[in-house]
Nucleic acid binder design. Structure first.
Lengths: 353, 353
DNA sequence: TTGAAAGCGGTACCAT
DNA sequence: ATGGTACCGCTTTCAA
């Protein structure tokens, strides 16, 4: 029993009676071939169970596949990891002639238009984008797509645009998981407060809704009150201090955005640290001591590294294999506590193919 | 500015004044080359920053890389996923001429010797093994390694053997995470019971120790009592019923092995379901309703799919790139609750490179 | 010990 | 519209 090696275009050429050049034309729907022969060749290819060899095709690829990316520098802890994931994935695809082209803006939401305008001039094959806003960049995204440069967003979606896919953690799920955890932590009893950047930001709003949905399912007691801090450290601190003063019976705080250190400081300064259950979002170095001291009891990790990594993979497969990714690739939100945080910080990872 | 394409062996040949054949000999330490020229070539290669192109080398590889595996059929829910991970990884490496060769035993720990004896006859390049025992198979593993067939264990380790690597979730960490979670669920108050297969099994023992270590750190109150059920459903049920009767004030149960459904039934039959906090191990279809009903509050997922997947990747990289994996590749234990279980059941996954 | 050349499975270009 | 062929970067004979 021969291991019946898989058929190559040469085999198809032989079987169909055409040359490999023609077979290639048929297989890739190139021009310069009659419909008749294309059909015939496609039929034999199918009957022989032909599958292209990506390795061979990569080897012979003339122009490199340039994958561009636009990342913010701030917040370092998050976007640095996204960027590492991006670079690692590209590095892994190096032998497939994939090249990175990374641009940066200083802060999320600032100067993206200009950077994108610049990128539109470049010869790129795909784009990974961290959109500073869920719709403001739609026109730009669409211009890339019209130039047949597929765009994959990361960290959030741009649902109104024609982006190919979005790789991120569903904020609703994120909040839902936090809510369930909080309910279990408190045995279903509150009161609980929610700290968020701004309810006008869709992702923040979704997290709050998700939290409330599972909180109301798993817990009784008063509806959690929501406090907006505009992503400002000072305000986060003050709001927390204020809430604690007014509600000394507060049992839990859910911090839906990245301001947890300020909240923790307020807790410590008010003497509530460790007594109030705190569930936060994301994970970065500054949070470590608070997890160790038990000020933060758990945090929901969004795996920025993998977001960057998977965005690249999705683009690559789309570009060279024609595999269309799902419109939304939701990554798993992960519950991180003291005993498993070492797995996620300083965050290292590895996949390979 | 040319994108200065990376050097190939041809470039090295040109630069060093030897032929590509000789360059290849030098690069791979093959015989039939003088030490002098090898050194010279290696030097120029280094100075030019040469890195081999895995795609090209895969394309030209004569014999396929055969990765063998030996999996148990039982417990389906776990080893089926390991197997899927194995197959998916191999499929992804298909174009690199990687072929699978899978053998099975009916039950973990039964007939492995015979199956391995058989595998020793085959021409294989690497082996993924689920060892039914942490030392009993050492002699076999060593025989493979002596034939220069690297072995990677999955789901547990065989530390006394010369296995190349072990991919699994550190059982101690696993228990530690469960213990921390339980402590938070109960506000640090017990009593708590631990259900385990047998303390004679190292992995079970480790889970218990891990649980106790974090329980004592985060909680006060009595030391949890440990009950062995010999992996027997009936015993698991009876033990649970018994414990509940004797300790109606029981607050939590940690099920360190796969017998959670029996424990859940006992809880329901005794009317304690939902009142007692239950943290289990692994995740399979039968557990879903218990998570939904709130009988199980959380479970620690060990990602069998990824265990199988990563074992393949480690073997491949070792065999074709010479990358030596760490002796132990600990995967992250994951906290799964009702609102995130959909991500892990029926368990789907994907990586790519 | 070393060099030359034939592929591996595709792609792309040049003839026809 | 089709066939032929050089070539991608490396491995592996086969000569020299």
């Amino acid at each position: 029993m021969t291991p019946k090696k898989r058929p190559t275009i040469k085999d198809i050429a032989l079987a169909s009676g055409f040359s490999i050049g023609t077979v290639d034309r048929a297989l890739h729907g190139r021009k310069g071939i009659s419909a008749r022969t294309r059909e015939k060749i496609l039929a034999t290819a199918r009957s022989m169970g032909y599958e292209p060899n990506r390795v061979a095709s990569a080897l012979t690829r003339k122009k490199p596949v340039v994958l561009a990316a636009l990342f913010p520098r701030e917040l370092h802890y998050f976007y640095d990891d996204v960027r590492r994931g991006f670079y690692d994935a590209v590095a892994q695809l190096r032998d497939f002639k994939v090249l990175p082209l990374v641009r940066e803006v200083e802060t999320l939401g600032k100067g993206e238009e200009e950077a994108l305008e610049n990128l539109l001039e470049e010869r790129i094959d795909g784009l990974v984008l961290v959109p500073g806003h869920r719709s403001r960049l739609n026109a730009f995204i669409n211009r890339f797509v019209e130039k047949s440069v597929p765009v994959v967003t990361v960290s959030t979606d741009a649902p109104g645009s024609s982006r190919l896919s979005a790789v991120y953690v569903d904020p609703w799920k994120n909040g839902e998981l936090a809510g369930e955890l909080m309910a279990h932590f408190l045995g279903g009893k509150g009161p609980v407060a929610i700290m968020v950047g701004s309810l006008d930001i869709e992702d923040h709003f979704q997290k709050v809704q998700g939290f409330l949905s599972s909180w109301t399912r798993f817990a009784r007691g008063p509806e959690p009150e929501v406090f907006e801090n505009e992503e400002d450290e000072q305000r986060a601190y003050e709001t927390t201090a204020c809430v604690l003063e007014e509600h000394p019976d507060l049992q839990g705080i859910y911090v839906a955005t990245a301001n947890s250190p300020a909240v923790c400081r307020a807790l410590e300064d008010s003497g509530f640290a460790g007594r109030v259950r705190v569930i936060t979002t994301d994970l970065f170095g500054e949070m470590r001591p608070y997890l160790e001291k038990g000020v933060i009891h758990a945090t929901i990790f969004q795996n920025p590294y993998r977001q960057g990594f998977e965005a690249v993979i999705a683009l690559f497969r789309f570009l060279v294999e024609g595999v269309v990714p799902p419109p939304c690739r939701y990554l798993e939100p992960v519950v991180v506590m003291r005993s498993n945080m070492e797995f996620y910080i300083p965050s290292k990872e590895e996949e390979k193919g």
